[in-house]
Amino acid sequence: MQDTATPVRLAAISGGDPALREAVALRLAAEGFALADDLTAAAALDALIILAEAKAQSFAGTSTADFSAHMGGQLKAAFVALQSGVAAIRAKGGGGAVVVLAPPAGANRSFDGLQQGLRLLAKSAALELGAEGIRVNVILPGAGGGPLGEGPAPVDVAASVAFAVSERSHFMTGADVVVDDGRMAA
């Protein structure tokens, strides 16, 4: 039951394709979060969700300009969102949670290094921000199916995001939450 005295928790979502954004937004709303319209305008936050996007493109078919645009663009967007979101979390005070979604492309993997770049960005931030009670974790969704099934739908990814931003993961930081129907276990 929601205590009427409980202050509303604020979250912002950066990036993401519309279906995933919507699923995450709905789940966060169900968990009692209010969503900031614009991350850069948010003065205070409890949670930041960075939804990086994968792109399937072959090595042969990827120009230097393509590589720089997607790899550099996504990594830099995550970095900028992290800086601005963490400033807003600090402004609110009392710690907070950041979740970085780092998806693989699955096939035509010329950009799959992005996933590892995002992972280490998050882990480094986790180490730097831990003492302030700001947790940073990574969601690694599968590309396609795995032994268990056809792969997670946006709602399934959103369920893991919800866990990673909630008090239920109070002691978890710098961790990977893999949501891939067992693909990486094989």
């Binding site: 993961s169 002691f171 978890m172 276990a185």
Partner: peptide
């Protein structure tokens, strides 16, 4: 964390190592 791994929120999660360690392992 165990509740998460048992429940329906992790319906597409299997074979993973979930580290909950305050950041030590990172």
């Amino acid at each position: 964390a165990i509740l998460f791994l048992l429940g329906d929120d992790s319906a597409h999660v299997t074979g993973i190592e979930l580290t909950v360690d305050g950041g030590r392992g990172a």
